[in-house]
């Protein structure tokens, strides 16, 4: 069975959406990535990735209510779908399986 391919950055954004748990939108995801990973990302990258994730069915979105803080403009709030969370879990499971197969000596860098 072919799994939908999830890129590295996509995985990261998807994780952030899961972490933010209903509070995820462009601003929070950008800030979260910066704070948690120290990576500096352009807004457009995040925006595009969120749209792509939604097209692939990993997240769903809806427009939130009007808020006073940003000139009354609505936010688009993202939340993870069942498919999205299953995919994340599968990835994690696979990783940990693979981790277990790594012989302990192999990660020791010689001469270190």
């Amino acid at each position: 069975m072919r799994r939908t391919y999830l890129g590295e950055f996509e995985e990261l954004v998807l994780l952030m959406v899961a972490i933010l748990n209903g509070e995820a939108y462009g601003v929070t995801v950008t800030q979260e990535i910066e704070q948690q990973t120290g990576r500096s990302v352009t807004f457009g990258t995040v925006h595009n990735t969120l749209i792509r994730l939604e097209e692939k069915g990993f997240v769903r979105s809806e427009l939130g209510g009007a808020t006073a803080e940003r000139g009354g403009r609505r936010k688009r709030l993202f939340s993870i779908t069942a498919y999205g969370s299953r995919t994340l879990q599968e990835i994690q499971q696979q990783r940990s399986q693979l981790w277990q197969m790594v012989p302990p000596t192999s990660l020791k860098v010689s001469g270190a």
Binding site: Y25, G26, V27, F43, H47, L63, E69, R70, G71, R73, R74, K75, R76
Partner: peptide, 8 residues
């Protein structure tokens, strides 16, 4: 949404 996000 983008305008709002960027302003924030």
């Amino acid at each position: 949404e983008v305008e709002g996000d960027l302003e924030e």
